[in-house]
Design a protein around this nucleic acid. Structure first.
Lengths: 150, 150
DNA sequence: AATAAATGTCAACAAGGCTGACATAAATTT
DNA sequence: AAATTTATGTCAGCCTTGTTGACATTTATT
């Protein structure tokens, strides 16, 4: 049993998400806000339904978090042009700035960890992650352009 | 910015922890119980203080979860021999059985993901994880014998 | 004998999951 | 044109698992 992978996965993720916590708290936000900010920054113009699929939470849970981000001016919603029922999500300038601040420590941590690996290390790690994702969601990873280095 | 690492890390961890959720729910347990069960199985006889350091939660949060595991016969507490203030934690037979059930799907997922990697793949992934952990906690990883393959 | 450490416990609170029910506007189907 | 479905939002209430603060007990250490 790959107990070592399980344990190290836990510690690595714990410290990865922990990076942003102190900064988030200052804004009155939590990890849920950070996740939304990440995806809205990654793919601006994403409809709400896509975000629900990604986060695998209910629309009520998302609504609470999204509302706070919109009310505080970090995220904007625009009516879709082809389908006017959709609310497309965009980070505002303020939202992008906050995301970059939140990402700064995570970025350093990731880059430092990758720097200790052999040349093909990053590719190997990314391929491992993709392999851990439910096969039916791997197309989503491609659509989000998260697999371009593979 | 290594946006791809951040995103894939999220998806991989989401599906990794999701594996056990349905099974846990049947027992009336959650992810917090699973984490305790993991560490108690990994290093039987661990004192409460170590578990608090590892999980980075308050003793009150841990107490609630631990209480339920003890009351339902999944974990036992024994008084420490050298220091009688300590309550050393052990999984019962029932606790080990539950942990193995919970781990079965995670194990398959991990092994399948590793199987897609080049020969040194597992080592590379483990080294990445260690690199993501706070330097001050790396000694803990050694003491837990999570770094023996490195 | 006094203090410190390891653990437990009570109470109250918050974030962020959940379910169920219902509402609205826009697109699609009949 | 009417009926239905889809995308989204909202209200209300519940649960798990985090939090803080205060205090108690037992055992070690000074």
């Amino acid at each position: 049993m790959p107990l070592d992978v399980m344990g190290l996965f836990f510690f690595a993720y714990r410290d990865f998400v922990g990076d942003a916590d102190a900064l988030l708290e200052r804004q009155g936000f939590g990890r849920a806000h950070h996740r939304v900010l990440y995806f809205v920054n990654l793919r601006p113009g994403m409809p709400v339904a896509d975000l629900l699929d990604i986060l695998k939470i209910t629309k009520q849970s998302l609504a609470r978090v999204l509302r706070q981000l919109v009310d505080n001016g970090y995220v904007e919603q625009k009516t879709g042009e082809t389908d006017r029922r959709q609310r497309l999500l965009f980070a505002t300038e303020k939202g992008r700035a906050l995301f970059e601040t939140l990402s700064a420590t995570q970025t350093s941590r990731i880059e430092a960890a990758i720097a200790t690996l052999p040349p093909e290390g990053k590719r190997t790690v990314l391929r491992f992650f993709v392999g851990m994702v439910e096969p039916e969601d791997r197309g989503l990873l491609d659509r989000l352009k998260l697999t371009e280095e593979l």
